[in-house]
């Protein structure tokens, strides 16, 4: 995984940017993710990834991935992406990162909004958010949703993630 490779597929690109620059369609939904403050001696911001899986099974679609994008050299920031172990198996391992509109720097504790892709086919999905922290834990939170999103949904982690809410 190097930064110099050409983006593999348009489908991976920039749903967030597209949603942001066009007039937001009525169906556009947003996920908010809370990264909790963890009171430990050695704290590092977690790697966090969100992806959508069709409820009936099928390919996962990554919505965002926050990792140490800037860390280069002998141990680049991509090295620890495999620690997001569920996402890694579900498709992270086949992606080229960084990816425009998907990847970003790690976030400090707080709540962040990310638009879901505007071009999702209607149907049932599970939004999964996974966090892994250096010298810390790992947690996976699942939120079942229907697209177009009318009701939204929410779930909460207990250690590495706070509330994950789609609305």
């Amino acid at each position: 995984m190097t930064t110099s490779k050409v983006m593999p597929a348009l489908s991976l690109m920039a749903p967030a940017l597209v949603a942001g620059t066009m007039a937001a369609p009525a169906a556009a939904a947003t996920v908010s993710i809370t990264i909790p403050r963890v009171n430990v001696a050695e704290y590092h911001r977690p790697y966090v990834v969100g992806w959508l899986e069709p409820a009936a099974g099928g390919a996962a679609r990554t919505v965002f991935v926050w990792y140490d994008v800037k860390k280069a050299g002998r141990e680049s920031g991509t090295k620890w992406l495999a620690d997001l172990r569920t996402w890694w198996r579900k498709g992270g391992r086949s992606m080229q990162l960084p990816a425009d509109g998907l990847s970003g720097a790690t976030r400090a504790p707080g709540t962040y909004q990310v638009p879901l892709p505007a071009n999702l086919a209607p149907g049932d999905y599970v939004l999964k958010v996974e966090a892994a922290r250096e010298t810390g834990g790992r947690e996976l939170v699942s939120v079942p949703i229907s697209v177009p999103v009318k009701k939204g949904g929410s779930a909460s982690g207990s250690s590495e993630l706070g509330a994950v809410t789609v609305r």
Partner: peptide
Amino acid sequence: STTTVAGTDE
């Protein structure tokens, strides 16, 4: 030490 690595520098 592991069976899964990210990238080809490991």
